[in-house]
Design a protein around this nucleic acid. Structure first.
Lengths: 232, 232
DNA sequence: CGTATCATTGAGCTTAGTCAAAAAGTGTGG
DNA sequence: CCACACTTTTTGACTAAGCTCAATGATACG
């Protein structure tokens, strides 16, 4: 199945009939909220398998991003009957599902970052690694700033400004609007809103102390004494 | 395995030896960033299966939240050998993996919301549904405001303010600090930073136009003409 | 009844969103 | 080959929302 830019692969709400794999090109899974905002929840690159989340109907719409994107479809019923008889196939099916899980976890980690610069920086590292198959310091962005914005839950302007800022701070460079070179990987990975590193402000100081204290306190008592709603 | 508040179920970086299921109680999977900030990427309630993401070693730490949380462990090797011979088990294993995927997708949708009030509101609906097994209007929060904050990537203060604000707007009520009643479900689901609804500002007006135009333009030409890096 | 933790509220500051417009690519047809 | 139309990207000014720091209640536990 060869797709053009923006072509729908499957629609939200339609029954799950196939499993899909991106052979080449780029695609996205997304929802459009009632307020018209689009949220991309999964960015699909060559080799990625997708579209088996819900057993009933699709929770998201899938679209090709780049012209010429090729997507392979496997009939669900056939794949599952084969999996029933061949456990190696069943194993592979599971592996593919885990691949999707991994992508979603990565996105959650990126979305959890505080500043736009961190999000965009983490996204670049993530994308570079996925495209190259290993950590790399050059990326050719297969998607527009708009797509990045909808993927990171930021506005386009903020994405653009974050990129400019990263460039000004010599953390990345551009060899073209969509060609990025990562200069200072460490600055992205350990980046901290206030620039300082290694202070361990909150989790250790305030929150972990609770768990730690309790762990040491009650370790000898074994499995606790009370459960009442509200934890401790 | 009966756990106390804050007890580690498995540690980040350790090999994956078991699959886990929450029998009763509540648990969390999280990472602690270099800056000390904790990010919860998965909230685990009774019945949830977890801990099979990476095949090598765990990417996250798992901890019990409430005293008396009971977690069952299934040796990975045994489960997999059984799955190899029994395809029904293999099928179930896949179902469980899909359950995790669903939770992650839900979180991404929540994190993608713009305002704190929307995030917290969506979280309440999500939690109510998971706890009751169906959409419900009463929730007893099994976790603290701190946990909510780390789950939604907000500060505790903002979570607290969002709850107060939802209460002031008669969208929720409290019958206790951790007991919430949802009064106006619609106000949460369609909530919009500016209060207006149904305008479809951006995706339709600016972005979709691109895809739509191209779809109509090139639909008859079939699989496109150019692919060059950078798409359109 | 102290002593933690958990929860709420206030003041000031930083950051991202919004609105608006200009600049830089990209492809098309004359 | 160049001018035009369109999209993508960047930048500016202003506004609004969340984070930080700080302090004050509320609640559970020993």
């Amino acid at each position: 199945m060869r797709c053009y830019h923006g072509q729908t692969i499957y629609d939200e709400g339609t029954p799950v009939e196939y499993w899909h794999r991106v052979v080449s090109g780029t695609a996205r899974r997304f929802v459009v909220r009632p307020d018209g905002r689009r949220q991309i929840i999964d960015l699909l690159l060559a080799g990625d398998v997708f579209g088996f989340g819900a057993r009933g109907s699709h929770s998201f719409t899938a679209e090709a991003i780049r012209d010429g994107t090729v997507v392979a479809r496997y009939p669900r019923s056939r794949l599952e009957s084969v999996a029933r008889s061949d456990t190696r196939v069943a194993q592979e099916v599971l592996e593919m599902a885990l691949g999707e899980t991994g992508r979603l976890q990565d996105l959650i980690l990126i979305l959890g970052r505080t500043t736009a610069q961190e999000k965009v920086g983490a996204f670049l590292l993530h994308l570079a690694e996925r495209l190259a198959g290993h950590p790399a310091d050059r990326v050719i962005l297969p998607i527009s700033r708009y797509d990045i914005a909808d993927y990171l839950a930021l506005s386009v302007e903020t994405v653009s400004r974050a990129l400019t800022s990263l460039k000004r701070n010599r953390i990345i460079t551009f060899t073209g609007t969509r060609q990025v070179a990562i200069l200072d990987r460490g600055a992205i990975e350990t980046s901290n809103p206030l620039g300082q590193v290694g202070d361990r402000p909150r989790a250790e100081r305030e929150r972990m102390s609770a768990s730690d204290a309790r762990m040491f306190d009650s370790a000898d008592f074994g499995p606790s004494r009370a459960t009442g709603v509200g934890g401790r």
